[in-house]
Design a protein around this nucleic acid. Structure first.
Lengths: 215, 215
DNA sequence: GCATTCAGTGTACGAGTGTTCACTGAACGA
DNA sequence: TCGTTCAGTGAACACTCGTACACTGAATGC
């Protein structure tokens, strides 16, 4: 009976719980403002905890921002991996459809994370900006590696492959941003479908360019 | 002697002068933070003027932000027009080179304006965000109109042309952002050349896709 | 010349900010 | 069982913030 809860981590768990609460509250507050304007007191007030408690978890809101970057981009990384794996065997047309659908779903599932990433990618807080930039560059690299397996890119230089990976990642981010903006329009579903349509055609354009890159 | 200064606008001119000073000071302060974190007092302090004087020109920092958007995008519009006009007769290769050069020059000439636009495009202040979005959409429209004159896009639908215009404008903004980031690296000139090289290849990729869009 | 306009001043207000520090009390390890 | 650890408290610190209001004095128009 006693050792079923092996004497460990009630404290650690409690701490984790308020840490999560801080992150969640911050994420919610960041939907309508940017990180450089987010106050430490504002966050603790939303959680219902004393301001000083904040320091037990982060030494500044910038550091909290970096933590948010990590969890947001972990999620995005999973989606990218899913896109790459899921569409590896598809024909070109349905591959594009599937990609855009997966982006739409990701945005629907984690809108606040995505909004945060897009807002802070060029935001006023350097460490956050750099963390996002570094991660996105890593994603581009991974996409480039996957691209190399495709017959259309046979014989490409590494540099050109990296360029192409970057194009896809940027395209993905812009599409996500579009889906995010869509929900604020008067007919969100129609707007989202418009975004999806443009995204599909952009990808088709890029793929056509890729096919004719050499010779 | 007396009517050489025709009794007009000494007041108006003085007002304009401090208005400019407010805009310039804000622009400088915004290089290291975002608009939602910019304080009215901070701006007036930088200009050397009483806080209340701010209200003679803007009713909030958001309104000042919108003014900045307008002047920043006027400048960008001129550069886009220059790109479209200047490269109308060129062959494809040098057209791309010229385009990228003009973007690089624009960023070198007005770095603060560009940084502001890129930062606030997805920033926390709605009216500013929307002003930027609307203007960029207008630019895309203009580029689309110009694209329609090109033989490669003969027979394209209006929707596809708009899509293409958007691709070019987004590409331009991303390139500008790249040039901006380049100056912060240890070898800025090399970084800028790397950005330029990637931008040129991206444009080449897009142009290849454009050429093979139909059939 | 004179009354009017108005860009900019100076002071004051209440409210919110980040950070500190001594503290409490429950979870912990031995 | 008992001393230690440490997440969270609450009060106080010295700021900064946006806004209001009565004001000054030079430019202005009649």
């Amino acid at each position: 009976m006693s050792h079923t809860v092996p004497s460990a981590g009630i404290r650690r768990a409690r701490k984790q719980r308020t840490r999560r609460a801080l992150l969640d509250a911050a994420l919610r507050l960041l939907e309508h403002q940017s990180l450089s304007g987010l106050g430490l007191r504002e966050v603790t007030r939303a959680v219902g905890v004393a301001p000083a408690a904040f320091y037990r978890h982060f030494e500044s809101t910038a550091e909290l921002g970096v933590a948010l970057v990590e969890e947001a981009l972990d999620g995005l990384h999973d989606t990218i991996a899913a896109i790459l794996a899921d569409t590896r065997e598809s024909r070109d047309g349905e591959r594009i459809d599937r990609t855009v659908d997966l982006i739409a779903r990701h945005v629907r599932d984690r809108p606040a994370h995505i909004r945060f990433i897009i807002r802070e990618r060029h935001g006023g807080v350097r460490p956050v900006r750099e963390a996002i930039g570094a991660q996105l560059r890593r994603f581009a690299e991974e996409v480039a590696v996957e691209c190399a397996r495709h017959p259309d890119t046979r014989g490409w230089s590494e540099d050109d492959l990296r360029m192409l990976g970057g194009v896809y990642v940027d395209q993905m981010v812009m599409t996500a941003s579009g889906f995010l903006d869509a929900v604020e329009e008067e007919d969100p579903e129609a707007a989202a479908e418009r975004v999806a349509s443009v995204a599909r055609r952009r990808l088709r354009l890029i793929n056509l360019g890729r096919r004719h890159w050499l010779g």
